[in-house]
């Protein structure tokens, strides 16, 4: 399956590019798996600089996936949006798994195989991360466009210029919307926890 993934993804991406409505649903698990393997390997290599470089990661994924695809701007944009959403999904699953682990559970770890290594005592504020996820869900319900921009900014590590290029919108407009989306998110995050 690992080797089959890029080809399948390419096919689904083409379908997506041609407007097939449920291509996204079929695409997600394929890309998910691919990106996950990529993340585990690639990010290890990037950690020397102590920075996460999701942009590089997604570019890399795109370069691999698009072989055989026409350099089509539209599918490219969708790919980035998709990649950001997938990255988010990966991290949410991971954070939930870690939270379960912390509470002494850990029966189902969707991202790690049984017998996997105990996590190092790296600082991870799971609550803070999951709060972001929940706030984004709320934003998605209220203004999906803003949620998508914030997702691309923070989960795919794209700059306003990257996003403008991918979505074929003006950088100016993206900057304004990003600022609003971020402000809204920060407003939600700085509220006292209601739990």
């Amino acid at each position: 399956m690992p080797d089959a993934a890029p080809g399948a993804i390419t096919a689904e991406l083409s379908a997506l590019g041609q407007g097939s409505p449920d291509a996204l649903a079929r695409l997600a698990p394929l890309v998910y798996d691919h990106l996950h393997r990529l993340a585990a390997g690639q990010m290890r290599g990037e950690r020397a600089a102590h920075t996460l470089q999701p942009t590089a990661l997604v570019h890399e994924a795109f370069l691999r996936l698009q072989s055989g695809l026409p350099p089509d701007v539209r599918s490219r944009a969708q790919f980035y949006a998709l990649a950001a959403r997938i990255m988010r999904g990966i991290l949410v699953d991971h954070a939930r798994a870690r939270a379960t682990e912390k509470r002494g559970g850990g029966a189902a770890l969707p991202l790690t195989k049984p017998g996997s290594l105990p996590a190092p005592n790296a600082p991870l504020d799971l609550e803070a991360f999951l709060d972001i996820h929940l706030a984004l869900q709320t934003l998605d319900a209220r203004d999906p466009h803003l949620a998508r921009l914030v997702e691309m900014r923070f989960f795919a590590g794209m700059t306003a210029e990257d996003i403008a290029l991918a979505l074929d919108l003006s950088v100016h407009a993206i900057r304004h919307d990003l600022r609003l989306g971020q402000a809204w998110l920060k407003k939600e995050l700085s509220k006292a926890p209601v739990k």
């Binding site: 790296a122 998110l185 700085s190």
Partner: peptide, 29 residues
């Protein structure tokens, strides 16, 4: 919104980065 606008973007960025870094080090044998 304007009050939140002046807060640091780290509020969003840091937990995401931490989660990603944590993911990168949780690996199989």
């Amino acid at each position: 919104l304007l009050a939140a606008d002046s807060l640091t973007d780290g509020l969003i960025e840091r937990p995401i980065r931490d989660a990603a870094n944590s993911l990168a080090t949780t690996t199989a044998p």
